[in-house]
Structure formats: structure tokens, C-alpha cells
Amino acid sequence: MTPNPTSGNGLEPAWFKSSHSNPDGAACVEVALTSVSIRIRDSKNHRSPHLAFAPSEWAAFVSYAAGH
């Protein structure tokens, strides 16, 4: 993923779409990096709940996903 923040005002994290998302937007996720967590949400429904991971948990997931 390549960070390309689309928003962020100091109160809300700056979300960016995954560089691996579909170009037509049909299956996109957005990510926000904070000092204490990595957050994931559905780009089509910003108000829905999102996931939050500690940096070590996210690193373990990415390492696992890259190998499968």
C-alpha cells in the first residue's frame, strides 16, 4: 500500500485507499496510520465500524498475507 492521505485534520486520522483496491471502487479498503494503531475501513461506508490493529499485529498479518 502506498499512503496517499485524503483527509485528516488532527482530530480524525488521514485515510487513504489501498493501492491494491479495484480501480472501479467496487472492492476498496481504506487505511489510516496513527501513532498507536493501524485502522482499516470499507471505503464505501465510512460510518460503519472499522478495525484497529497494534503495529506489531499489523506487521504479523502483512507478513502472513504476503506469504499466502
Rank of each mutant, 00 (worst) to 15 (best):
M1I: 10
M1L: 13
T2G: 03
T2P: 12
T2L: 11
P3C: 06
P3T: 00
N4Y: 13
N4T: 07
P5A: 07
P5G: 08
P5I: 03
T6N: 14
T6S: 12
T6P: 10
S7Q: 04
S7M: 09
G8D: 10
G8V: 09
N9F: 04
N9W: 01
G10K: 03
L11G: 09
E12I: 13
P13R: 05
P13M: 08
P13W: 12
P13I: 07
A14Y: 07
W15I: 03
W15M: 05
W15D: 00
K17Q: 04
K17H: 09
S18N: 05
S18K: 15
S18P: 04
S19E: 03
H20S: 03
H20I: 04
H20E: 00
N22C: 08
P23W: 01
D24C: 05
D24M: 10
D24H: 11
G25K: 07
G25E: 00
A26W: 15
A26V: 07
A26H: 13
A27M: 14
C28T: 02
C28Q: 06
C28D: 00
V29I: 07
V29Q: 09
E30I: 15
E30A: 07
V31H: 08
A32R: 13
A32F: 14
A32T: 01
A32D: 02
L33H: 09
L33F: 15
L33A: 07
T34V: 04
S35L: 08
S35M: 06
S35G: 01
V36C: 02
S37G: 00
S37Q: 11
I40N: 06
R41V: 06
D42W: 10
D42C: 12
D42V: 08
S43V: 11
S43M: 14
N45C: 13
N45W: 02
H46L: 09
H46Y: 04
H46Q: 07
R47W: 00
R47P: 15
S48R: 08
P49I: 09
H50R: 15
H50C: 08
L51F: 11
A52C: 04
A52N: 10
F53H: 05
A54N: 06
P55I: 09
P55L: 09
S56V: 06
S56P: 01
E57F: 04
E57G: 09
W58L: 03
A59C: 06
A59M: 11
A60P: 01
A60S: 05
A60T: 01
F61Q: 04
V62A: 08
V62Y: 14
S63W: 12
A65G: 10
A66N: 12
A66C: 08
A66W: 13
H68R: 11
